[in-house]
Design a protein around this nucleic acid. Structure first.
Lengths: 234, 234
DNA sequence: CCTTTTTGTTAATGTAAGGTTAAAAGGTAA
DNA sequence: TTACCTTTTAACCTTACATTAACAAAAAGG
C-alpha cells in the first residue's frame, strides 16, 4: 500500500529525548533523520525531501522559528510541527505566524503526537494532488519557468521575476481560465489575509498585467470580491 | 475585504462559558451560532452552512463525538475543533478518530483558539480548489456559470453578474419551472428577512428580467405572496 | 369599486473593492 | 556603509455593488 515510508526531519538538541523520540517514530514506521541543532537541521533539510518536520523551539544557535523560516523559503509546502515548552503561549502564536501546522507542548503524549503526524501527513497528501510539482507553464505566447523564476515572451530574452511575482503568476496559471480565489493566494503566498497583504497582492497583479500585455490575448480578469482569472483568448 | 464573515457553529452546554466564548468570537469578526446541547447543535447545523464547528466533548444527552459523527455523515468536509477537559488523552485520540481537525484542552487560551481557527479555515480554503458543486446551468439559450459569475447568451460575450444577481439566478435555476420561495432566497442570500431586504430582492429580480429578456422563452414569473418561478417555455 | 398589500422598475446614494503609481521600508551583498 | 532589489504602505482615483427611496402597477380582499 505505502509507496514509501514517510520521512520525518526531527530537529531536537536534547540528545536523550531526541534519540528516544526518533526510536519511537521509527518503531511506528517512519523514516527519521535526527539533527542536533538548527544549523544541522537546515543542512539535512536541503539534502533530502521530507514529508514532515518536527522542530524543537528552544535550541542553541538557531531556534526552531528561524529554522522554520529558512525551511519555508526553500519549500513553502512541507508541514511543520513545533515542540514548545509547556504554556509558552507566545511561542505557539509565533509558530502559527511562521506557518506551523501544529504544535505540541512538552512534555507531550506520544500517541497524541502520532495522531497529529498521521492527520497532518494525510491532509497534505490530499492537498498535493491538485497543485502538484508543476513549475513550467505556457501562457499564451509566454513561457513561465517558476523554478528559475523567469518569464519569456516568444522565445526571446527571459525577464526575471521576483519571488512574489513568480508565485502569484504560477498560482494564476495553475487555475488558468478558472477562478483563482483571492484568499488562496493570500494564504498560500502571503500566509496572512488582511487589508495590507490584500493591497500588496493588488500591486502584484498590476505588475503582472504590465508584463503580460505583450500578448493581447492574455489577460488577468478580476471577479469582484472573489479573486482573479487568468484567461487566454483564442 | 471579506466577502462574508466566516460562520462558526459553537456547541457548548455551559451557558456562561458559551456566551463568553461566543461574544469573544463575534468580537473577532466571526458569525457565531450558539447551541446549548448536541441535539440543538445538529438542528442548527442542518439549517445552515458553517465554515467551522467548535464542539464541547462533555455534554448531556448527546456528547460532542456523537454529534461530530452525525455532522460528518451529512458533511464530511466541515472542520471540527473539540473542546476537551484537561488532559483527557482518550478524548483527544477519539476525537482524531472521528475526524477532528484539532482539539483544545480546557481551560485554553483564547488567542490560541483564534490562531487555530484562522489556520484551519485557511487550510480548508486551499483545499477547496475543485469542489464539484453545481455551478453551471443552462437556462433557455443562456449559460450561467455561477462560479465565474457570468451569463452568456447563445455562446456570445458573457455578461458579468454581481454576487447577488448571480446567487439569485442560481437559486431560481435550481428550482427551474418550480416555485422558488421568497423566504428561501432571503434567508439563503440575504441571511435576513425584512421589508428592506425583500425590496432589495425585488430590485434584483428586475435586473435579472432585463438580462433574460434576450430570450423570449425565458421568464421569471411572480407567485403573489409566495415567491418566483423561472420558466422556460418550449 | 375602493383600499391595502405586494410587486415592478428606475434612479440616487453610500460604501467597499480594485487599479495604479510612487514613496517608504526591509533585506542583502559588495 | 552604499547600492540594489523586493515588498509593503500610502495615496488617489475609478468601478462595482447593494441598499434605499420614490412612484407606478397589479393583485387580493373586502
Amino acid at each position: 500500500m505505502e509507496e514509501h515510508k514517510k520521512r520525518i526531519l526531527l530537529v531536537e538538541d536534547d540528545p536523550n529525548f531526541g534519540t528516544v523520540l526518533k526510536d519511537y517514530l521509527m518503531m511506528n514506521d517512519y523514516e527519521v533523520t535526527h539533527a542536533k541543532n538548527g544549523m544541522e537541521g537546515f543542512e539535512k533539510f536541503k539534502k533530502d525531501d521530507f514529508d514532515l518536520c518536527i522542530l524543537d523551539v528552544m535550541m542553541p544557535y538557531k531556534d526552531g522559528f528561524t529554522l522554520a523560516k529558512e525551511i519555508r523559503e526553500k519549500n513553502s509546502d512541507v508541514p511543520i510541527i513545533f515542540l514548545t515548552a509547556k504554556t509558552m503561549k507566545e511561542d505557539v502564536l509565533k509558530g502559527y505566524k511562521v506557518g506551523a501546522d501544529d504544535y505540541l507542548n512538552k512534555p507531550f503524549d506520544s500517541e497524541v503526537l502520532l495522531m497529529k503526524i498521521k492527520a497532518i501527513i494525510q491532509r497534505k497528501a490530499t492537498e498535493t494532488i491538485s497543485d502538484s510539482k508543476q513549475f513550467e507553464f505556457k501562457i499564451g505566447r509566454f513561457d513561465l519557468n517558476s523554478k528559475l523564476r523567469f518569464l519569456r515572451f516568444d522565445g526571446g530574452d527571459p525577464v526575471k521575476l521576483s519571488p512574489k511575482e513568480n508565485e502569484l503568476l504560477r498560482l494564476l496559471a495553475l487555475h488558468e481560465n478558472d477562478l483563482m480565489p483571492r484568499e488562496l493566494a493570500l494564504t498560500k503566498i502571503w500566509r496572512d489575509d488582511n487589508y495590507f497583504t490584500s493591497r500588496s497582492m493588488d500591486v502584484y497583479i498590476a505588475k503582472l498585467r504590465k508584463y503580460l500585455k505583450l500578448d493581447p490575448k492574455v489577460e488577468i480578469l478580476n471577479i469582484h470580491g472573489e479573486g482573479f482569472r487568468l484567461v487566454i483568448n483564442d
